[in-house]
Write a protein that binds this DNA or RNA. Structure first.
Lengths: 228, 228
DNA sequence: ATAACGGTTCGATCATGATCGAACCATGAA
DNA sequence: TTCATGGTTCGATCATGATCGAACCGTTAT
């Protein structure tokens, strides 16, 4: 009886209520930080850390370091399979779960990631910059081209001042809702700030969501060729 | 976070090694007794009883009383789904499991269930008796018809003596490998005994398997119209 | 009736692990 | 550099539940 695959080991991992909540939260496909997961799970930060450690060790969850964050996501489709089967069984013999995600759409469209723009709008902007040759992407690095510097200056961003700062100008940032990349770094922050001063973007209070105004929509298309 | 389906509850049930072994053993589709499952799980009878109680209460396992046995089987295909997904995940990140069941086929073909015949041969005989009008089946009861009594006497079975015994003459017995019914009761036992004395059937030592001899094959076809 | 056997219940023992707060480490922002 | 914050580690506490043996119950066979 010792020869079977350790389905008990995996089931035990899922069996803790806190961990089950964590995994359920990750079922959306989004990658979440430990803190967000702690809130979802309803336990403290330290407890969550321990749980995440077990889940990662058990290959149910994969983690990606990103600055001071650690983004957690399900380790693979097989894991999602198991969770889905479990939810189907549980739903069939008890109470349903909806979890439609009411404000999910807004977050998916545009949100702040620290101080830069993420979401669909963020990745679109990132792609547009590269498409115009204003940035050059090479294997985990992003550089601002000369033409890009000129364009940014024209957009009222003081690139030379940003270059003097210690923090990197351009940095790729993996966007988990889109599973693609958007622009971080001081330039990313400056871009979002300028968009806010121009009235192109407005932060939603008490949320990471960002609203792109009609003016912002037009401006992004005219200035960067972004189609939203 | 309390609103979700209790995937944790179910996962906890599967998470115990002994219970995982029990469920794995039931994945074959066969219904097994508590004692057989205890051997599979590698724990004592009392422990197994407790585990089975939890599994039944948790709707993962269904139980059917049958004489002094209690046959346990997976509660439904959703349960098998979950187990299959778990095994797939576990196999993908560790050691495989074969469990091909070497002597499964022999048991499936013909075996003793207590002292009567079960398996493919058992259900075929059951069907043949009903097909010839020798038994009448009505909603969880089986009765021997007058024609059937005559036929049994001709087969050297003393039906009148059997009727005097306290145990019922005919009883339907659910056959789990076939998921159909075969004949139990004192007549069922007498039929198998007569088949053995005639050399139609031979028990395999240390096994529940029964071998149907070529003579038995012919005899069953000629006497009862059973085609194997 | 009696023996044999499958199965359950009970009580006691024991190990595991979930949880928290506090201290600590690491990274990014200013 | 300094501060704020995300995240981890540690130690202590506490609850759960897995396990066994023994006694007990119910059914079948003789």
């Amino acid at each position: 009886m010792k020869d079977g695959p350790d389905i008990a080991r995996i089931a035990t991992l899922i069996g803790d209520p806190a961990r089950a909540n964590i995994l359920t939260a990750l079922m959306t496909g989004k990658a979440l930080t430990a803190r967000e997961l702690a809130r979802e799970a309803g336990v403290g930060a330290s407890t969550t850390s321990t749980h995440l450690g077990r889940l990662v060790e058990g290959r149910l969850v994969a983690v990606t370091r990103q600055g001071r964050h650690r983004y957690h996501r399900l380790a693979g489709p097989e894991v999602a399979n198991v969770l889905e089967a479990l939810m189907g069984l549980a739903a069939g013999q008890g109470h349903l779960r909806h979890r439609p995600g009411p404000r999910e759409d807004a977050l998916r469209a545009a949100r702040v990631c620290y101080n830069h723009l993420a979401g669909t709008a963020g990745t679109a902007l990132y792609d547009a910059l590269a498409g115009r040759g204003w940035t050059r992407v090479s294997d985990h690095e992003v550089m601002l081209s000369d033409a890009g510097a000129v364009a940014m200056e024209a957009f009222e961003i003081d690139v030379t001042a940003l270059r003097k700062a210690r923090s990197p100008l351009c940095r790729p940032c993996l966007d988990w809702s889109e599973r693609r990349t958007h622009l971080a770094g001081s330039l990313g922050r400056a871009l979002l700030a300028e968009m806010e001063t121009r009235g192109w973007a407005r932060r939603v209070p008490d949320s990471r969501a960002v609203t792109i105004t009609p003016a912002g929509r037009d401006g992004l298309r005219g200035t960067f060729g972004v189609r939203l």
